[in-house]
Structures are given as structure tokens and as C-alpha cells.
Design a protein around this nucleic acid. Structure first.
Ligand SMILES: [Mn+2]
Ligand SMILES: [Mn+2]
Ligand SMILES: [Mn+2]
Ligand SMILES: [Mn+2]
Lengths: 216, 216
DNA sequence: AAGAATATTTAGGCTAACCTAAATTTATTA
DNA sequence: TAATAAATTTAGGTTAGCCTAAATATTCTT
């Protein structure tokens, strides 16, 4: 098996590659809070193990095997987050760090039983899809609230920023997953948005509108 | 905080000290599947951190701080085992290795919520007591079945040997925690024992009788 | 297309946790 | 109690994962 560190590298490369198609040494270093020189060391090791495609100076992508591992870590992360929120009553802004530890528990048996115990949930508490036991999941295409026009309706379905502060802000505003929203006004000057949510009007900044995701 | 390795050393020292009052370098090495020289290295580090009392060549005991940590690991181990058996339907012989990993998840919040979720169980699937969130638990004094006399009655309450093969054997024989037993016969020659369990007579060897624990 | 800026790799080192082999200390026993 | 056996520690080395500083490659700018 792989070390925690290797697993974290694979996961970081997976997430970074979703954006740009590949991940650079510096991006990986930033996302793992380490230094570029350390990343280069690890990239050599992962390439040696045939988990990534690596050519010096060119950035990396995951091999099929590497991607499989990355997705299995993500499956574990999201299932544990779901467990923490739904069974142990954690708030959605409190679960990420604990899940960062739990995702490295190796047993596949454990995670598959946990999945069954919870009724095979499809989405984690932040709206991210949970891969099934074969690693399959639909990458639902979500768009930010800022793409809505006046009178546009949608359902809050995810977040682009997973930080504690953003999640807490959304919770305070009652802008949580599943809520129906309608845009009542868009400010031309600062692009802030006024939303109708249930019986309330909620005013959010452009930044918030960019980081809050919807399905139509 | 401490590394996984440090935690495993503290736990091993705790268990070994319960028997003999202190733990020797070789005992620790055996129980952790490592070498005496490695143990000596670690003992120095743990002594440095004031988690153990260590004088060269004399064996070690835990300090109050060390014991507190050891007990918190044991609490986590046993609560996770309980969870795996009661919520995820693992068999009692399948949970130890997974719990060895789960016991190192740091969050106290997590383990206390898990405890609450399960209704504050007092014993793990093997009959071992689960320390509460303050580290308190009663060391219930169990005796082996082999101490019973003919016609003696008792309740199966624990095991001295936690190996998979012993647990599987007990399960096959239906000698599980909570069962009422009565000794109907003791063989003078090989000290094997015949038990009445519910409507069945079960013949067990002296070795099994020594490793199966009862409360009166 | 050359020079400057940026990104990446290499070189050399560190610490934690291991190891084997060689002392050294403690325990056993004749 | 001397000498042998057993337990423990010390010495010297390894690997994973990290670091800083220096070298080199790539990219951007004029
Ligand atoms: Mn998360
Ligand atoms: Mn999530
Ligand atoms: Mn166990
Ligand atoms: Mn147990």
C-alpha cells in the first residue's frame, strides 16, 4: 500500500488536474503546504511506482492506477464527512479536518460497510459527489449563482470555496444545500445579488455569488 | 501531539505493566514486532517527553501523563470496535486490525460524539471495559472458566486471548459474551471441561478453559 | 532573439523510526 | 563468587519525507 503522504499527493494532483488538465510542481507544493524541492522528490517516487506521468519541468498527470487510488481516497473522505454530519451531528464546517485523517484508514471493507450503513449517499455535506465502490460518480456540472439573471431560479447544490469561514457564513445566512433560491435583483455597480430564499430576501456580494454553486 | 508510533509504545507499555507492574525492553520489542535496540531509542524519547519513568536496564512504567494518553488510545480502540460490530455488522474477530488504525484519529470531539451516538457502551465486543471520556473505567476482575468447580455457574464475560483463531473458535462453539454456562464435568486426566450452554453440552480443552473469562 | 523573471530540479542536510552487530550490564548457576 | 547466559544499550547505518541554497530550464518581455 501507499503512505499517507503518497495518498495526499495523489489526491492533490487529482484535484489540481481537474482544473488545468495537469498539475505543476509549485501548485502541488502550495496545496500541500510544502516546498517545491520536496515535491520534486516525491514526484520521482510516484513516477517510479507508475502512479503519475512525469517528465521533468512538464508538470504531472495521474496514471489510471494513480487516479483509481485518488478517487478511493476522495470516496472515503466524502463518506466520512457524510457520516460525521448525518450520524454524529457535526456541522458542515467542522468535518473536513477529521475527514482528512479518516480518509487514510485502509480497509475497503470498512468503507463499503459504512456506505451501506448510511444508505449509499450520493453527495457529501458540501454537495460534492461521492464515488461508488467502483470509483464511479457523475461530475454534476454546477454553476455559480453569479451566472443567474434576474428572476432566475435554482437550487443551492454546492460550494466552490470549502473554507470554514465561508461555510459558517452560508449557514448563518441559511444558504445551505437544497435551498431554493430566486434572484430578485442584481446590482450593476458591484455585482452584488439579492436572493429570495423561502420568505426572506438575502443580499450577497459578488464574491459570495461566485463561490456558491447551483443546479438549475 | 504524539506520533502513531509513540502512541503504540505507550499502549504496549500500559498493557504490559498491567501484568508485571512494569515493562521490559524485550517485552515491548516483542509486542510491537520490533527490535530491542529500536525500543531503547524510543524509550529515551518518551522519557525525554516525561511520558515514562525510565532508568537504564530497569524497565519502564508510565507517568501519569503517559497513562492518560494510553487510556485515551484504548478508549478509542474499544469504542471503534464496538461501532464496527454493533453498527457495521462486523464479526468480533474482524475488528481488531481496523481499530488499530482508527485508534490514532486524534479528534476528542469525534470520539465523544461516537460514544454518545452508541449510547455510552461499557464493554467492547470482547468484554473489555471502555474508559469514559475522563479515562475512568472499572477493571472488572474476571476469572478463567478453569477456576470453576463442577456444577459451578457463570456468565461468559471476556477472553484472555484476542487472536482471530480463538475468537472464531468460540463463535463456532457459540461461546460468546453474555452466555450463561454451567460446568457439568471436569476431566481429571487432561483437565478438559464439559459445559452446559443453553440446551447444549460443549466440551472444551484446558487451554480454552484458561482463556475464556467469566463473571460469577 | 537576448536578458530578466519565474519555475523546477539538484545538492547537501536534517529527523524519526527502523535495523544489525558489537559492547556492556544484569541475572543465573555451578 | 566466578563464569556463563540473557537482557539491554551503544555504535553506526538506512529510508522516507522534509528543508535551504544553488544550479539549471522554461517562459515572458522588450
Ligand atoms: Mn472535505
Ligand atoms: Mn466535502
Ligand atoms: Mn482490539
Ligand atoms: Mn477488543
Amino acid at each position: 500500500m501507499n503512505t499517507f503522504t503518497e495518498e495526499n499527493y495523489l489526491k492533490a494532483i487529482y484535484h489540481l488536474s481537474l482544473q488545468a488538465g495537469s498539475a505543476s510542481t509549485n501548485q502541488i507544493a502550495t496545496s500541500l503546504n510544502t516546498k517545491a524541492a520536496s515535491v520534486t522528490d516525491m514526484l520521482k517516487k510516484l513516477a517510479e511506482k507508475a502512479l503519475i506521468n512525469y517528465t521533468k519541468y512538464q508538470g504531472v498527470t495521474l496514471t489510471a492506477t494513480g487516479e483509481k487510488i485518488a478517487i478511493s481516497i476522495i470516496r472515503k473522505h466524502r463518506l466520512w464527512e457524510y457520516f460525521l454530519v448525518e450520524k454524529l451531528n457535526f456541522k458542515w464546517d467542522q468535518v473536513h479536518d477529521v475527514a482528512e485523517e479518516l480518509e487514510h484508514i485502509a480497509s475497503k471493507e470498512l468503507i463499503d460497510r459504512l456506505d451501506t450503513f448510511m444508505g449509499h449517499p450520493k453527495y457529501d455535506p458540501h454537495g460534492d459527489p461521492i464515488p461508488d465502490s467502483n470509483g464511479l460518480f457523475k461530475t454534476h456540472e454546477l454553476k455559480p449563482v453569479s451566472t443567474l439573471v434576474v428572476n432566475g431560479k435554482a437550487i443551492i447544490s454546492g460550494v466552490r470555496d470549502h473554507s470554514t469561514s465561508f461555510l459558517q457564513y452560508l449557514e448563518r445566512m441559511q444558504l445551505t444545500i437544497g435551498k431554493k433560491i430566486k434572484v430578485t435583483e442584481i446590482n450593476d455597480y458591484d455585482h452584488s445579488v439579492i436572493l429570495q430564499v423561502e420568505d426572506k430576501k438575502i443580499h450577497i456580494s459578488r464574491e459570495v455569488a461566485n463561490n456558491l454553486l447551483i443546479a438549475l
